[in-house]
Design a protein around this nucleic acid. Structure first.
Lengths: 277, 277
DNA sequence: TTGCTCCTCACGTCACGTGAGGTGGC
DNA sequence: TTGCTCCTCACGTCACGTGAGGTGGC
């Protein structure tokens, strides 16, 4: 018979843990002195304790450990629990590996460039959305080429939406695709989320479903879109430094619009894929 | 201005999180309606929110995030925090990788041998300990060769300890080493922990400091030491299946001893090292 | 008498999730 | 009137760590 302190030393656990296991019924002492409440354990209970610790070390909760040890879990169920645990640990390791890459990217920025990165780049899923849109073609993907195309498209779009009796269901979205021909020209989509309605297709508007994007790197741009290049470059650098790759063009979400371009707030969404490794 | 619900949608966070960040001062809404208590956020605050999320995603606590964003942390301190985080994530990944190996070893046992493993093998550090001991030589590492050597050693040891006026400070420890000659003979150490005293060295006893063992796989054996082989083999199989390697001979700790060998409880400690990978 | 071990509450941890119970504008 | 959004408490989470306050045997 061991006192709780001796048993804890032999089992390399804390006294508090043994009391907790007693309270939850996971591991009861072999006997308890009714007068003093002192707990006493048998040496053979060390095997039980080690089974508890071994299962806990696999990452099971104490409730699960208790069910497994009480044989309330069939072999098939246990197999299922182990497979689930395997998947969870896998996901955990992947998440931590990505986290490690982000920490190291920050350290590199500090040590190589001597500056503290102030970025607010975040990776997010972009939900699918139904939009009404008008399209135009710009000669290149430079702000100077894009802006003159975008502005009239949106003036037009708002009029036609109003004419169709429809309202925007969210902030405007601009997205791009390569124009056929391969001369660097770009098709510009001026879009705005709408609630699906038969009438929305009238007035020469196209109604399009934008697919969900699994993961996009997101960065907020402040001010006129004429200055978007530096923000876009910061986003590209972050993507590169963290081991991802850009996939296609970014989307631009107009979160705040006013007559003064300095007040504009735009979210840049760059779809990415993980680079091998 | 966004309501809390709109801001949460754009930032892809829960309303509850925004309220929590307000309560802790991490991110206060741009203004609050004094009558209703409604919170309102500006689009430009999305950049702040993203900075919070980006730092949180590195694994920092909200307190740390708050300190970093309030610029209460110098560049050098931030560098130290990042290095610490890097080390912590590293350790986490290693622990999870070992966990994954243990889960997969269990799955293999279930699927290949069709049995649910009932093992209680645990990896532990073994603390250094000062022992008084007597040694003998056995022809081999079989129980039949060891037992006849051990028994008289311990009879002798208890007498001499008593003669020296010393008492055991813990359960008896048996450990082994290869005898010189390479003929398979083994030096058997019959040892017992003692509190250091000048007198303990009398009576022909050696006082020896057993070094700490960084990691040992531990398994409880029940019953006579004549049957220790199967328990030892179970321990060896576990070590192999979980990607470790045995280093030298096991130690045997007598946790429970009585005239009836069926009541004996012994802990086998097998020092191990991680196999490459 | 001082130390040591044991006991039973009971709060704290960390970042929210999840009701409960109520209000205000379409 | 029903829904929807917003509000403020306040409990629950998970496995213990850490006192507080007290007892019993050497």
């Amino acid at each position: 018979m061991f006192s709780i302190g001796e048993f804890a030393r032999h089992g390399r656990v804390s006294v508090r843990m043994l009391r907790h296991y007693d309270a939850t019924g996971l591991l009861r002492p072999a006997c308890v002195d009714p007068a003093s409440g002192y707990r006493f354990y048998q040496a053979s209970q060390l095997a039980q304790l080690n089974r508890v610790i071994a299962l806990k070390d696999l990452g099971f909760s104490l409730q699960q450990v208790q069910a497994i040890l009480a044989e309330q879990v069939s072999a098939a169920e246990l197999r299922g629990m182990l497979k689930l645990r395997r998947a969870e640990i896998h996901a955990q390791i992947e998440a931590d590996t990505a986290r490690l890459a982000r920490v190291e990217a920050r350290l590199l920025t500090i040590e190589e460039e001597g500056r503290v990165p102030t970025d607010g780049v975040v990776i997010k899923r972009v939900a699918p959305v139904r939009v009404a849109e008008l399209t135009g073609t710009a000669a290149s993907f430079e702000p100077e080429a894009i802006t003159p195309v975008i502005q009239p498209l949106y003036s037009d779009l708002w009029c036609r939406l109003a004419g169709a009796g429809a309202a925007a269901a969210g902030p405007a979205v601009v997205y791009y695709e390569d124009a056929p021909g391969g001369d660097g020209a770009v098709v510009v989509h001026a879009a705005v989320p709408v609630v699906a309605q038969a009438s929305t297709g009238a007035e020469g508007l196209s109604v399009v479903d934008l697919a969900e994007v699994d993961s996009a790197a997101v960065l907020i741009h402040h001010g006129s879109m004429d200055d978007v290049l530096s923000t876009g470059q910061a986003l590209a650098r972050w993507i590169d430094a963290n081991g991802y790759q850009s996939v296609g063009y970014p989307r631009e979400i107009t979160l705040e619009w006013s007559p003064d371009p300095d007040q504009w707030v735009t979210e840049l969404q760059q779809p990415i894929s993980a680079t091998g490794g």
